[in-house]
Amino acid sequence: LRAVEQHPAMLFFLDNQQSLGPDSRAGQNRKRGLNENLAREIMELHTLGVGGGYTQEDVTSLARIITGWTFAGRQGQLG
């Protein structure tokens, strides 16, 4: 599961490289916050399934945990 979720293609496709801590300096400067796409897919499609008993709070908590998972592009810059 970890290898799949941390693969650059998955991080790019589900926009996790755009996820920033809403209270972080970067989040405040860029006026962005958590991106829940990857967290929701992990819970809904890759582990618990639709109706698996998780809540929106669970999705948000997982998004906070995995914020920062990113990748380096061809130029060596973070994705």
Rank of each mutant, 00 (worst) to 15 (best):
I65S: 14
L78S: 07
A39M: 00
Q56Y: 07
R40P: 01
E36T: 03
R32D: 05
T67V: 06
G73Y: 15
G73A: 14
E44T: 06
M43V: 02
G79S: 07
I66Q: 02
R32S: 04
F71R: 01
N37D: 08
L78V: 10
Q28G: 01
P8G: 02
V50E: 12
I65H: 07
S24N: 04
Q28T: 07
L1H: 05
G27E: 08
F71T: 01
A3K: 14
F12D: 06
Y54V: 02
M10H: 09
T60P: 09
P22F: 04
N37L: 05
G53N: 06
E41D: 08
H46A: 14
I65V: 13
R40C: 07
M43R: 01
G68C: 11
Q6N: 10
L78K: 07
E36D: 06
N16Q: 13
N37M: 06
E41T: 09
T55G: 02
Q17F: 00
S19P: 02
A26Y: 09
F13L: 15
T55Q: 05
I42D: 06
D58S: 08
E57G: 07
V4Q: 10
R2D: 14
D15L: 11
K31P: 01
P22K: 00
F12H: 14
Q6I: 12
Q77P: 12
G52I: 11
N29D: 09
I66Y: 00
T67Q: 12
K31W: 15
F12Q: 07
F12I: 09
L48Y: 04
G79W: 15
G52D: 11
L20R: 01
I65G: 04
Y54K: 01
P22W: 03
R30S: 15
E5H: 12
F13C: 14
T55Y: 06
E41N: 12
E44R: 06
L34S: 02
Q75F: 15
Y54C: 04
N16Y: 04
V59W: 02
R74I: 15
G52Q: 08
G49S: 10
G27N: 02
Q6L: 12
A72T: 13
R40E: 04
A63K: 03
V50I: 14
L62Q: 10
G51A: 09
F13T: 14
W69R: 14
T70Y: 12
R2F: 07
A26W: 10
T60Y: 13
A9E: 09
L48A: 11
G53Y: 08
T47P: 01
M10Q: 10
D58H: 10
S19M: 03
A3C: 08
S24W: 09
I65F: 05
R74Y: 15
S19Y: 04
A9W: 15
N37Y: 02
G21L: 05
